[in-house]
Design a protein around this nucleic acid. Structure first.
Lengths: 213, 213
DNA sequence: TTTCCCAACTGATTCAGGTCAGCTATTAAG
DNA sequence: CTTAATAGCTGACCTGAATCAGTTGGGAAA
C-alpha cells in the first residue's frame, strides 16, 4: 500500500515514526484514548478487540506483521474504537496521524488505496455480522478456525498463542461453549488438539459446517 | 458532502446520472449484481439488507432522502454486498461509478470527506456488532426503537411503513420474538402500539434497557 | 520440592429465545 | 359479498447455549 508514495512522502512519515517493543499481554492501544497515532505491527502477534459493556470482549481481528490499525476511529471521533493487546512479544511502529493525513491529502493514489483498504475492512465486518447473527456455535467456531488457519497462520496448525478464550471471544460465545465445540470436533476427527495447538485435519468438512451454519 | 466539489465536477457527475421511481416493495439494488452505479434516495424511504444463507435477512439500515449507498461494495469486489428495497414509493438517483471515481481521484477534499463517510459507517457497524453479539432481545429491540425514532423519523413516533418483521430483522431475532418484546414494552407503558405505528412514551427507560442489555 | 494460580475440561442445571400451531383483523382479489 | 392471503398476535413446547460447580494439569513463584 505504501508503494505509491514518493520518497519525500515516505520521509515525512518516517520523521513522526517510532518503534516500541511490547511484552506478552501488554496493551498497545486502549479503547477510548486519543488517537494521535496510527499503529502497525512489525514483528510478533497481537489481537484487536472491543470491550463491550458487562466486561465481555469481542475480538475483531488477530494481527500479524504489516497490518495497519487505528485509522477509522481516529479520523471520525479522534478516539480509538478498540483496544489492541500483544499476544506475544511484539514490535510496534507508531505513525503520526497528522502527517498521515497530510500525505493522504497530497497523494490521490495513496488515498485511493487507503479508501480501498477501509472499504475492504467494512465489507469483511458485514460478513462477520451476518455470520455472528445467523449461524450457531458450530458454524461460528468453524469460521474462526478457517480464518485463523488460512488468513493468519497460513498453515493447518493454529499455534499455542491462541487461547480458548480468544476463540470464544472471536466467535461470540462463552469460553465453556467454545471448549465443548472444539472437543466435539476432535471427537469427530475434524481437528486434533494438542495442548493449545489446534491442527485442522478435515478442512472440507469444516467448510461444510461453516456453510450449514 | 458534495459541497466541496467544483462546478465542473458536479457537471461531470450529472452527465452520468439518472433518476427512477420505484414502487413499494420493488428492489432497487440486488445483492450480488454488478455495481456500476452509486445510488442515492431523493424522495421516499428504503431499507438496505443482506440476504444471509437459510433465507434470513439482516437489515443494515433504513434509508431516508440524501443517504448514499453502494460505494464500498463496488470499489472492492465490483459487486453489491447488499440489497436495497423500496419501503414506500421512492425516487432514486443513480450515479455513474466510473465518473464518481474520477472525481474522487481529482478532488482530495472530496475524497477525504468520502473516506470520513465510509469510516463512520464502519465504526457504526462495529457498534452494532457488539450490540448484536452481547445484548439480549430486550436491549436489541430498545436499540432498534431508539435508532428508528432518533435517527430516521426524528420524532417519537415510528410510522406504519416499518413492519414487525423489519424490526426483527434489524434486531436479529425471529418475528415472533420481536412482537413479544414490543407487546411487553407496551404493557410496561414504555411504548404505545396503534396498528403498525409505534409511539415511544418513555425514552429514558428505553435507554436504560438498551444499556443494561 | 511445595504451593499457588490459571487454563483447560466436564457434567448438571437453567433459561433465553426459536419454532409451531392456531386465532384474529385487515386488505386484496374474484 | 365471499374468499383468499397476509400481518399481527398468543400460548405451548423444545432446544441451543450460558452458567455454575467442580476436577485436572501445567507453569511460575517461593
Amino acid at each position: 500500500m505504501f508503494a505509491s508514495l514518493t520518497i519525500e512522502e515516505l520521509k515525512l512519515l518516517n520523521e513522526g515514526r517510532h518503534s516500541v517493543k511490547f511484552n506478552e499481554g501488554e496493551v498497545i492501544l486502549k479503547q477510548g484514548t486519543r488517537a494521535d497515532y496510527l499503529v502497525s505491527v512489525i514483528e510478533g502477534f497481537a489481537k484487536m478487540y472491543i470491550e463491550g459493556p458487562h466486561n465481555r470482549n469481542l475480538v475483531l481481528d488477530f494481527i500479524k506483521p504489516w497490518k495497519l490499525m487505528g485509522g477509522p476511529g481516529a479520523q471520525v471521533e479522534g478516539k480509538h474504537k478498540y483496544s489492541v493487546v500483544a499476544v506475544q512479544e511484539t514490535l510496534i511502529c507508531f505513525i503520526d496521524q497528522g502527517k498521515f493525513k497530510k500525505v493522504l491529502a497530497a497523494n490521490s493514489d495513496f488515498s485511493g488505496q487507503y479508501l480501498l483498504h477501509c472499504s475492504g475492512k467494512y465489507l469483511a465486518t458485514l460478513d462477520r455480522m451476518v455470520n455472528i447473527s445467523q449461524k450457531q456455535m458450530h458454524g461460528r467456531v468453524a469460521d474462526a478456525l478457517i480464518y485463523l488457519s488460512s488468513e493468519i497462520y497460513e498453515c493447518p496448525t493454529i499455534g499455542k498463542e491462541i487461547s480458548r478464550m480468544d476463540i470464544a471471544e472471536y466467535a461470540c460465545m462463552s469460553k465453556d461453549s467454545a471448549i465443548r465445540v472444539l472437543k466435539e470436533f476432535e471427537r469427530d476427527q475434524i481437528i486434533n488438539l494438542e495442548g493449545r495447538q489446534i491442527e485442522l485435519l478435515d478442512t472440507s468438512r469444516l467448510h461444510e459446517i461453516s456453510n450449514k451454519g
